[in-house]
């Protein structure tokens, strides 16, 4: 079976699930909205962070979007754990779909949730006065970047799920991964402000590149770094797909 087609089926599956039940999308939107509505204006009022002439809330909007995307995707791996405990994964393994396409397909389908999430957060950002680049192509680009990066994080979570054997352990690990990545990125402050060690860390942090891509498309409109960002995202995705597929057999047993 064609893996692309399989991926599309998984995306369709996720869209249908969201259509029936959107509660999770709304509840998960609470946290990012708080970052935008409270943290942004309060920190911005201090004028302590040099953002290159952008309002602080505008500066962190991409970071908040990416953080929410990564939470959605990481916890998507939890679905995989649930599917292992139920019979769904077993059943999928006995379909003609190749195993790696199950991993890649399930990972990419988390992008559906991430994009829906972004479509809730962005209007809130607009409401509180964040100015975005008024170009529909750029906007589509933002959603595409979020969708594609989501796959990498979801694959990461499948990898974690294959190492963890229980849901409870998994919850803790999910938090423990996202928050450090978030703080070691340019989501809340420019990289130039960071101490050297953090600077080095942030340069190998996929979140830095994703935030940068979203920021250039959504806020600044300056696409000079975009090719580099996209290349980094592609490497992150492919690497995680390969590692997750390789460790997938641990989930099965």
């Amino acid at each position: 079976m064609n893996p692309i087609k399989n991926m599309l089926v998984m995306v369709e599956l996720e869209s249908r699930r969201i259509r029936h039940d959107r509660t999770e999308i709304y509840t998960r939107a609470v946290q990012p909205v708080l970052w935008l509505v409270i943290f942004g204006p309060v920190m911005g009022a201090l004028r302590a962070i040099p953002t290159g002439g952008i309002a602080y809330t505008d500066f962190i909007t991409p970071g908040v979007l990416v953080q929410s995307m990564s939470f959605v995707s990481i916890f998507f791996g939890l679905t995989m754990v649930w599917e292992r405990e139920s019979g769904i994964l077993k059943k999928l393994l006995v379909t003609p779909a190749p195993r790696y396409s199950i991993v890649v397909g399930r990972s990419m389908s988390s992008g559906v949730r991430s994009v829906f999430q972004a479509l809730i957060i962005i209007p809130v950002a607009l409401l509180i006065g964040v100015r975005i680049v008024p170009n529909p192509l750029y906007f589509i680009g933002v959603l595409a970047v979020l969708f594609v990066s989501s796959g990498g994080f979801a694959a990461t979570s499948i990898l974690i799920a294959s190492l963890m054997k229980s849901r409870e352990r998994f919850m803790g690990i999910g938090q423990a991964i996202i928050m450090p990545l978030f703080f070691a990125s340019n989501a809340l402050y420019p990289i130039e402000m960071m101490p050297p060690i953090l600077k080095a860390l942030s340069s190998v942090n996929p979140m830095t590149y994703i935030v940068d891509a979203v920021r250039s498309l959504l806020i600044t409109g300056d696409l000079a770094q975009l090719p580099l960002d996209l290349a980094a995202i592609a490497i992150f995705d492919v690497a995680m797909f390969i590692i997750a597929s390789a460790s997938f057999k641990r989930i099965i047993e």
Binding site: M1, K5, V9, E12, G87, I88, T95, A97
Partner: peptide, 22 residues
């Protein structure tokens, strides 16, 4: 164990598997 998605309809479950089976 249960191998269908409870948050989809019966028809949708069949549809997804039909597509996976090509």
């Amino acid at each position: 164990e249960m191998s269908v998605w409870t948050d989809l309809s019966g028809y949708e479950n069949m549809l997804i598997y039909a597509k996976i089976y090509g």
